[in-house]
């Protein structure tokens, strides 16, 4: 392949003059400036702050350079707990939402008539304000009058104090997490399913396969690239779980401060404790973790290229 690589490189026939250089540059400039101001500069600044000792926010002063912030963050049991919580949340939410989404997507893929309706419905959670969603979920989870407890009561299960009992709060967070992750996941999987030539299903049927055989032997393997992609994207987005936590537990990380996540830790260090150095250090740690997953994602995408 290497000998073709040179060909791929696009070379314009047009001669590069000041004019041909300036024109696209002007078009790109606003965007580039935006990136520079809102992404590049803040990123490097965050890196810098994470190495500043005793950083003071308002007066922008610090006592020297060092790894103190990282030492502090890694020796803080709350941060360790935040990483453990985040990992648990990701494992549970990403896997459960994937399984449910695959089943729903496969079912939806077979009913063509109502797809427009469903596709609108999936987007509802994505376009509704998270505050409103949080409110609704707090109603659903309510101990006294929540519908979840009503449903449980139909099966003679005692009411669960979803939001106030620390033993159940992680479950509640995960339920919410799975729910909020479904639409995006289903949409992507549905797109993946629609890319599968229906002839494979027909072929499998002729080969004697039943619905379950087809699901496990044809649908899932052919959907694997999409599943892999969605899983990684969901894992990355779950690392930043915060909204849900904030909404469900009224600004506290769980009823007994038991649900710190990395972002909540970061938020608290910054917003309520003004420890910008710690906040920056934890942000950089999170960045490195996410970077690793992004690299894995690229690998996976290359590996599953069947066609």
């Amino acid at each position: 392949m290497s000998k073709f690589k040179k060909v791929k490189k696009y070379k314009s026939d047009e001669k590069v003059t000041i004019k041909t250089f300036l024109k696209p540059t002007i078009y790109l400039l606003p965007f580039m400036l935006g990136i520079l101001v809102f992404t590049v500069y803040p990123f490097f600044n965050a890196v810098a702050i994470s190495f500043k000792e005793d950083y003071k926010v308002i007066s922008d002063t610090f006592s020297g350079w060092g790894l103190g912030n990282y030492q502090k963050v890694f020796s803080d049991p709350t941060f360790i707990k935040a990483i453990i919580n985040t990992t648990q949340y990701i494992l549970v939410v990403v896997s459960i939402s994937l399984v449910i989404s695959i089943l729903i997507a496969v079912m939806l893929n077979s009913v063509e008539k109502l797809q427009w309706l469903f596709q609108t419905a999936y987007f509802m959670p994505m376009v509704t304000s998270s505050a409103a969603i949080g409110l609704v979920w707090r109603w659903l989870f309510n101990y006294d009058y929540g519908i979840l407890n009503y449903l449980l009561s139909l099966f003679n299960v005692d009411a669960i104090n979803f939001l106030n009992n620390p033993q159940y709060s992680m479950i509640s967070l995960c339920i919410y997490g799975v729910w909020s992750m479904l639409p995006f996941t289903i949409i992507l999987l549905l797109a993946g399913l629609q890319n599968i030539d229906p002839q494979y299903y027909t072929a499998a049927k002729v080969d004697g396969a039943k619905t379950v055989d087809i699901f496990f032997n044809i649908t899932v393997p052919l959907l694997a690239p999409t599943i892999g992609l969605v899983a990684i994207v969901n894992i990355i987005s779950s690392f930043t779980v915060f909204d849900a936590l904030y909404m469900l537990f009224g600004g506290k990380p769980g009823p007994a401060y038991n649900l710190y996540t990395v972002i909540f830790y970061l938020y608290e260090q910054f917003y309520t404790k003004l420890k910008l150095g710690y906040a920056a250090a934890s942000a950089i740690v999170l960045f490195v973790i996410i970077l690793l997953f992004t690299m894995v994602q690229n690998r996976i995408q290359k590996k599953y290229d069947y066609y």
Partner: peptide
């Protein structure tokens, strides 16, 4: 990712515009 960015950004905007 967006949420993360927003937070990082606001942290940095705060620190950023010095002088």
């Amino acid at each position: 990712m967006k949420k993360l960015l927003t937070i990082i950004l606001s942290v940095l905007m705060l620190v950023g515009i010095a002088g």
